[in-house]
Design a binder for these strands. Sequence first.
DNA 1: TTTATAGGTGAACAATTGTCCATTGTCAAG
DNA 2: CTTGACAATGGACAATTGTTCACCTATAAA
Lengths: 224, 224
Amino acid sequence: MDNCSPINLFTMKDLTTRQQEILTFIEHHEWRNGYWPSIREIQEKFGFKSTNAVMGHLRALEKKEVLERIAGQARTFRINRPDMPEEPVMPDDATEVVDIPVMGDIAAGYPDRVEPAGEIGRLQVDIQSAGFSSRRRTFALQVRGESMVDAEIYDGDMVVIEPRDARDGDIVAALIDGETTLKRYIQKPGEPPYLKAENKFYPELYPVTELCVQGVAKAVVRSL
Amino acid sequence: MDNCSPINLFTMKDLTTRQQEILTFIEHHEWRNGYWPSIREIQEKFGFKSTNAVMGHLRALEKKEVLERIAGQARTFRINRPDMPEEPVMPDDATEVVDIPVMGDIAAGYPDRVEPAGEIGRLQVDIQSAGFSSRRRTFALQVRGESMVDAEIYDGDMVVIEPRDARDGDIVAALIDGETTLKRYIQKPGEPPYLKAENKFYPELYPVTELCVQGVAKAVVRSL
DNA sequence: TTTATAGGTGAACAATTGTCCATTGTCAAG
DNA sequence: CTTGACAATGGACAATTGTTCACCTATAAA
């Protein structure tokens, strides 16, 4: 059927109306307050008499991979795909756009500490189109080298990076030998994480140090 | 939240280096993880042996009105940053931006004749980044099928199309069997042009009719 | 009927997390 | 010398918050 990419507007997950309400409230709460709600705050908002009502919905949302959380920790949500407005979108100026700086060369450090000289252009992507979070400081990188050819990312491509912690399977921008490169982030339960180049001719593995991973790749842009 | 009082000037640089470090870490943590740190997470990051070290700094930051919190609630920070205003940045009017409608399904006809219902999002790309012409009615398509895998364009990718006449070697959006697909446009001197799928398993050739080619692909956008 | 899924109640539990007590030390200004 | 800020320790406490167990209702499918 439709085997679309993981992030897109074409596959609407079939959320229950209740689950949709919960999700919307969580997003809205974060948007208005700057932090995520607690379970009991959600409970109170919907008038539930038990936190279990919320727990059930959260579990469902997590199973549908719309939500992510950190077990046992308070107010640590992560929403994988922003909610699509059910109303037809106004393509006017109302459209919220993420403005992404394109960094030419970030050899070291975090991109927000790199001087503007490193910026060689701008890329603007609609939120709904790509599932970016407007609050994060997304940026774009130009790929050098062939280390990711097996992931269909080639020299000269532009990769949109969202700074955040990586999870197993993510493609990350990693700082190795003073140069930013793309690697696959592998973390199996009970084992230390490592980085792997997606090129069968260079099957190197790299250890993950604290300052290594700069962010997670969210999209690829290639000029033809 | 009215900041009618001219806070800055005074409180701006009044931060201790330690307080600055704390503040930076809090901001950075939210930036990377999407949620605020807990006090003990701050404590651990700085190697404090007591949460009180953090508490003191937080109180100081709150007194200086750089931070806001909600007493007794977890991970509920709010940072007042008088520096870096967010809106006046505006990607200089000098930067010309192409606003591209993303068409979900254009089974027939030219996209500008399709009703707005076909539009499912927008994509904005800087001219410098991709070399688009702002005058043309650029649009974007989502790729279905595997017909272009040998050109490193895969199912689910988004392709930016610029309506114009094709030249030899261009990748074009072509209308075949009532469906828009991507094909390579081949035109050798003295021979009639034809379309070719970039997939060695489907080496079909297609004749070029007048209404066949909708435009030339200029860029690929893929969500990871 | 049985089974499964979505939605919810109620109470208890345990971990996380914010808070406050008293105390120590440094360092610059008065 | 004294005062006051800044910085940090150690331990304890209480509130917030996530989690789980058992049980209930309704609806739709098998």
